[in-house]
Amino acid sequence: MFSSFMTNAWIVGTVVALLAGATGFFVVLRGSSFAAHAIPNGAFAGAAGAALVGVTPLVGLITFAVMASVGIGASRRHRSDVATAMALVMMLALGAAFLSLSAAYEPQVEALLFGEILGVATTSIAPVVIIASLCAAALAVMYRPLLFNAAAPDLAAVRGLNPQRLEMGFMLTLALGAALTVPVVGALLTFSLTVGPPAAARLVTRRPGSALVASMVLSVITLWASIAASYQSNLPVGFFVGSLSALAYVAARVLTQWRGRRV
């Protein structure tokens, strides 16, 4: 389980989980789960487009992720879920068209959706670490405005905080993270880690800093447990990440309800 073949999976998995936990804290805070789902899923269509044009998949991923995030970020606040849905289906449909025109292989599509974390190449470690650090830095810079805007948007606007710019900055951060993590761990795995553990974390503490740290820790534990379970059982990692993430949230809910009051 800790053989050299698995080392890359542990390293990349940990970095991705830390990033998903941190991003997810704000995703849950802002109610941006739909965007967090749409951006990586749409981005994967970009890889198909890149194959058609004949450039490296990363270019397609970044192009599509940024397009999606700009489309979502620029939408009116009212009914922004409609804009997200439309951006998502448009990109997926484009992906379908690209695939049918370029005759790419199905297994490649599947890999982009479900990921190949157990087969991570050593060369993809450095880019993942670099992009994750960039995203983390962006989140740190936006930390207080994101918190303020999520808690009391009107008051934040009165203090001169531009909500549009903040939303755009956050969406671009999501896009950057998605473009890099999708080919490594798959769109679905990232999304599960982005919602379950953070939603659980904020139930168990009322301090914003602790909730952020708890979210990252819970996300890493979920992923580690999933990799170990997958290794032992030979079942897909995505299954364990998905179900353990959901379980983490349900457990936190039961725990707070059982304690009878919120912290």
Partner: peptide
Amino acid sequence: GVVLGGATGLAAL
């Protein structure tokens, strides 16, 4: 989001 995440895990399985 939680239901979707869990369900995609099941779909993967």
